[in-house]
């Protein structure tokens, strides 16, 4: 099996069956929390992003947003892209969303964008979910319904986030939730701008 270069880093870093069922799972959206599991000690949202040993060309894709409008990564050439893979059932995805929104707002006047790629779910799944969030995400949310984009990026777990430079090269990667509004993350973004 060929190991994806996306994961070689530099040393020293539809539809719900019933409203009742949806409500039950929405309440239990925290995968290991709520009334259905013991309370885990969720890892702290750190801020370390790992730099790839060799930058890799980010695979291009075309995905639709909630308004059924298409977005391609190629059209974002010239911008720094924070590409985040997530799903509504993923607790750390929920925890890190406010920081994604914060960093998106902070760099709004710069050539920087956050793109959140939702895995396997539908706008009908996602819209009510984001409506419940404390901070409404204003960055594009795209739908990778068949998982092909996450496979192209060798994403094994959610959330996984990539920081792509203005030439379309993946420079940094983070597996697991992060506080993207941390000064160290913002420093990396500025270095790429």
């Amino acid at each position: 099996m060929v190991r994806s270069k996306i994961f070689v880093v530099r040393r020293p870093n539809h539809q719900y069956r019933s409203r009742v069922l949806f409500a039950a799972v929405t309440l239990g959206l925290l995968l290991f929390a709520g009334t259905a599991a013991a309370q885990p000690v969720a890892p702290e949202l750190g801020y370390k992003l790992s730099r790839l040993a060799t930058p890799v060309q980010a695979p291009d894709f075309e995905l639709k947003d909630m308004d059924d409008e298409s977005h391609t990564l190629g059209n974002l050439r010239g911008k720094v892209v924070m590409l985040n893979f997530w799903a509504t059932w993923c607790p750390p995805c929920r925890r890190e969303m406010p920081s994604l929104e914060a960093v998106y707002q902070e760099f709004k006047s710069e050539p920087f964008v956050v793109i959140a790629v939702n895995e396997w779910e539908t706008p009908e799944h996602v819209f009510p979910y984001i409506g419940q969030l404390a901070v409404f995400p204003s960055f594009p949310i795209l739908f990778d319904r068949d998982g092909k984009v996450s496979q192209a990026y060798a994403v094994k777990g959610l959330p996984t986030t990539f920081l792509i430079d203005q030439k379309g090269m993946i420079i940094y990667r983070a597996v697991g939730g992060r506080d993207f509004n941390h000064p160290e993350v913002k420093k990396l973004i500025r270095e790429l701008l």
């Binding site: 750190g46 750390p92 697991g176």
Partner: peptide, 18 residues
């Protein structure tokens, strides 16, 4: 293809998965 713990992962500092 989600929900089950990935077969194998290589983590850098700060990485985690569930």
């Amino acid at each position: 293809r989600w929900s089950i713990l990935p077969d194998d992962q290589t983590f850098e500092a700060g990485d985690w998965s569930q």
